[in-house]
Design a protein around this nucleic acid. Structure first.
Lengths: 130, 130
DNA sequence: TAAGTGTATTATATCACTTAATACACTTAA
DNA sequence: TTAAGTGTATTAAGTGATATAATACACTTA
């Protein structure tokens, strides 16, 4: 449960999930939230590995997935950069939201709650969360 | 992605998750949905293992977790039974719902959508889902 | 007593994840 | 040209979770 700041990126790594997945998720979310500027260079594989005290291969895997998602672009000898498309990030955020919603609806489906019940609990959770 | 019917329980087992977790989740949900009667005897470890063509130890693990969650009660020489408390199931369902809601809110937090936006997408997903 | 329960143990196999060491290709700046 | 810093690739090994296998024990019921 350590909190690191690598470059402009805040990362919380624990043992709940694979490390590469945590890095992937958190950078992805940071992009969606606008915490990382479009076009910005993110820390190199080696620097990230060094600061998080993990293996470069693990960072590599996270970065590879980021590129597969179309969120970053790598330039040999220069580094890894956030894909500079506002439009794409917007689409990506929407896709993320819809994915989370589908997952949520699937989870609660058949639990026997009316939608009014669900809404009430959501409101309660929102009040308590903040 | 095979569909089995063991006793009164429908089970879909695939390779997306650990087998014991799928059994656990699906029996838990079946209880919450009322698809399994309270007090009912569920298939024995051996029968379940035989029908799903998996190892008894794997079934055991699922059943152990079910008991840890307070949903079942085992009687040596007799079998495993659903805990006969309507009240407890009700509490359990509420806890499940709240857990799913928390997870959902945490996921979408900071994506930059207003709550009105989220509600709109939820409505859309509900229409398309059914 | 026999058959059917849950339980426990030990051993083995497989896979995902992670680390480690090393080498190569490319870019930039001194 | 050279050195340092990039991403990339490969091979090997270690670890833990998951699953299987074989076997034995304790209990309940018919």
């Amino acid at each position: 449960m350590k909190e690191h700041k690598v470059g402009s990126i805040r990362l919380r790594i624990d043992f709940s999930q694979p490390i590469y997945e945590q890095i992937l998720d958190q950078i992805r979310n940071a992009i969606a939230k606008g915490e990382i500027q479009l076009g910005e260079k993110i820390p190199s594989v080696r620097q990230m590995a060094h600061e998080l005290k993990i293996n470069p291969n693990t960072v590599m895997r996270a970065y590879r997935e980021l590129e597969r998602a179309g969120l970053t672009e790598k330039r040999r000898g220069q580094g890894t950069f956030i894909t500079a498309s506002d439009e794409y990030v917007k689409k990506f955020k929407t896709k993320l939201l819809e994915q989370y919603i589908d997952e949520f609806l699937e989870n609660i489906e058949g639990l026997g709650f009316s939608w009014a019940d669900v809404e009430e609990y959501v409101c309660k959770a929102k009040r308590e969360g903040k």
